[in-house]
Design a binder for these strands. Sequence first.
RNA 1: CGAGGUGUAGCGCAGUUUGGUAGCGCGUUUGGUUCGGGACCAAAAGGUCGCAGGUUCAAAUCCUGUCACCUCGACCA
Length: 480
Amino acid sequence: MSKKKEAEFVQHITPRSEDFSQWYTDVILQTGLVDYAPVRGCMVIKPYGYAIWEMIQKEMDQRFKATGHENVYMPMLIPESLLLKEAEHVEGFAPEVAWVTQGGNEPLQERLAIRPTSETMFCTMYAKWVQSWRDLPMKYNQWCSVMRWEKSTRPFLRTSEFLWQEGHTIHETEEEAQEETLQMLEVYREVAESVLALPVYVGQKSEKEKFAGARATYSMEAMMQDGKALQAGTSHNFGTNFSEPFGIQFLSREGKLEYAKETSWGTSTRLIGAIIMTHGDERGLRLPPNVAPIQVVVLPIAQHKEGVLEGAKAVADQLAAKDIRVKFDDRDTVSAGFKFNDWELKGVPLRVEVGPRDLENGQAVVARRDTFEKITLPIDGLANALAALLAEIQQTMFLQAQAFRDAHTAVVSGYDELKAAVNGGFAKGMWCGDTACEEKLKADLNATTRNMPFDQTPTGDTCVICGKKADKVMYFAKAY
RNA sequence: CGAGGUGUAGCGCAGUUUGGUAGCGCGUUUGGUUCGGGACCAAAAGGUCGCAGGUUCAAAUCCUGUCACCUCGACCA
């Protein structure tokens, strides 16, 4: 397709290469994922966007259950006194908490925080529920929304209110808690890579970047197409940092009173932002088949002609019977060309065209969203062929994203190289562990440490920031 | 919080410099022709120009105040 012709088709979306930020806004609004709400910093998630969230929820939730977790629901309001119990936690969250100060017409005795996260609520309840080592572990998760009064917001990436899940567990031993922390990080990585087709770097956060109140924080970091990092999920080991102030004690096997060891882990609707910014292109959204609410759209072509609607519907039914998520688009108010562009914008992985000529020949035209490749396949057995094709698209999209990330990740040995690398990508290099170096990095380059990979094979022996002796392998990047 | 910008039809915008009948595109409605890559023709509906005050014969336009939103910065477990 010529440049000129392509430009005509996509005039509604700002070119990604020209202004990535505006491209993102155009895509999320025009695909109907979200709309802005009449509340500061809040978004309305529309049906198509919510359907993606439901897919993510389903995939995550079944893995949580498979690893022995149960869902619960905690109140949205947290008394101030509870929030104040863990010092670091309070300090970290205080600036962004929204408060309820009045009930009906009466001012409240104690103001109530709208939860920014629920550690304090879970801890309070765990303290009540746990008596003995026999009660452990307790492994609960909740799906809910939280509120953080962020200064600047972007739909899906950072909003005042957002949907997420937060897992909170308590254990007998340090080892068990650490095992849980890493297990859930692995669940996140697996969902990100196999379902969302997001290649991620997993590893441990620095002291400066870790969660307020955690002993250790681990994250998965995804790379967006502008080269910036997006923290796509976190898992924390709290040790006894919360269980001590909250008094979560149990009688051990040896008959001694001990504090429970605690973890928490979370992912949010930010994952949808990650999918958009990792896979989207000039035509709009591209959804990996495993997370696409609609995997195949079937379009009757020249549908006013006799037999076309019925023939195309039969194709859609065949696919649905094979558990393919299919949409039969028989709108007669818009042209076929409009539909092509519409579904490409919405990122549906496969389009099947069924016209009079196709029906005559017992075939259908199949177009891939990921590569724009068009092929003709027999209608007989189409469901099996498309199931295989969807799996291939899933794989292709992951490999594309991985190739992009790898091409934009540079191993660096000094500050100049670091500076060049974080301008549009990730840098991997040695770090001395000093917070002062992180502050300098932030001040000079507006970049941060992302995480330390588990494979700590040294890439050098001096800090890429200060030049002193260093023994930590770190990923650096500018981040959302 | 600092700097800049924008508020005009459902959406996107022009009109403001130089005051003089409220405009355009998309969408919507009705009818017809189309239909294998964003169809066309004809007709129609749709407005407290963010809000308040001031100047003027006359304000979307000038002045003062105010509110909201956006971008960048700062901030961001």
